[in-house]
Design a protein around this nucleic acid. Sequence first.
DNA 1: TAGTGGTCTAGACCACGTT
DNA 2: ACGTGGTCTAGACCACTAG
Lengths: 249, 249
Amino acid sequence: MALLKNSALREASFTPLYKQIKSLILQSLNNGEWKPGESIPSEFELAKTFQVSQGTVRKAIDELAAENVLIRRQGKGTFVATHHEAKVRYRFLSLVSDHKVPKQRARSQVLKCERVVANLEQSKAFKIKVNSELVYIQRLLFLDECPTILDNIWLRADLFEGLDLNMLNKHKIPLYGLFETEFGVSMVRADDALKAVVADEEKANLLQVKVGTPLLQVYRTSYSYGDKPVELRQGFYLTDHYHYQNRLK
Amino acid sequence: MALLKNSALREASFTPLYKQIKSLILQSLNNGEWKPGESIPSEFELAKTFQVSQGTVRKAIDELAAENVLIRRQGKGTFVATHHEAKVRYRFLSLVSDHKVPKQRARSQVLKCERVVANLEQSKAFKIKVNSELVYIQRLLFLDECPTILDNIWLRADLFEGLDLNMLNKHKIPLYGLFETEFGVSMVRADDALKAVVADEEKANLLQVKVGTPLLQVYRTSYSYGDKPVELRQGFYLTDHYHYQNRLK
DNA sequence: TAGTGGTCTAGACCACGTT
DNA sequence: ACGTGGTCTAGACCACTAG
């Protein structure tokens, strides 16, 4: 794609230069040219390769940084966001302790990892054919050594070839970190839909509570670069000592 | 406050010009110089009054626009955000229908409006003295004519003098719109803490459901300009046909 | 046509981290 | 001392809205 500088023959199709630059950067990220944790070229270098001014590159990076796709570090450079750093490790885990101080520790226990076939709803969400293959994972998340979250997870099988119970149990890192490192899939955004439900027998057993205990049900769709949906989740959160925190602006 | 241009005698106290401009704008908003819905002076005018370049004013406004404090409209001007416009009327109502299409209609029924005394927790949250006076409101919100949300609301009495049951029942506008118009209090941000609970007898009666029905409990602290906390809320949401939606980035 | 916000440029200088 | 991102400026021009 050639850059369209403010030229003459546009007809109601104006796209700012910096948006085009942003797309090019996203494309490079998608192609794996720059990997999570690594630095991307400096603003001046990018300006030179794209044949635009540094300020224009800057504006493109500004937006990507606001979306947590890139991270700027003054004096050091601009880096591709990663789920591995301690600081952002639990970026997508909105559940926090009611007594904020004792920064909880998370441990995951994977119960199932199977290949399944996409139902109508799932195929719609992923924009793939019905009966396409998915990976289904069930796992329990312990916070401060208490079973607190029961997750049912579905992934596009074509993006996660080779993912199995063995691999999941071997790694001690958060799932999103594993996806990033082992499969080159970076989660950058997620949409959650929350409801209050009560625990049925299966969930009650797994979470070690009584049937009828209220649970926070969190349905999630996670997206990679370019709003590509790559994960569906049904989470059931025990909120006796934790709460889901959210900031509205 | 005089603007500190990049001068010599700073010692580890650097504050960018545009941040100072931002503070000045926020101050004007706080003083009620520019009211919600109105336009503020153009970027060039502000640049002239503040004796900086237009680009610097622009960056200040950019941040305030990102925080939904100001709204930019190309060709028209920059406006103070308001809760009255249809588009952003329910900005802070995260509950949406599961079948998104039939854009729900909200109706509020106020049950109580009393003066009460702040407990320890409330006085801490508001950063006021214990036993300070608060306004307590209990109301039921109907979505599509079904009782769906039970709200308990506490406000700083000194900011809401004259607020009573009569006034609340007279107005057909959302609460945050009323607060803005009648008391000059603009809500710009809120922190929600969510848990799953079950309905006790009182809540079950009011929401017309059985005791034991799971409810989404939403504790909220709302802030006005300058992160000033002005409202505490305990909401109980019926999530049989609605869900709390949230985007993670 | 005039006025507003939106884009783009080029250049200077500052703050921060590393060498 | 150098290279990075961060700030600030001045000016040109484009896109949108309204009179």
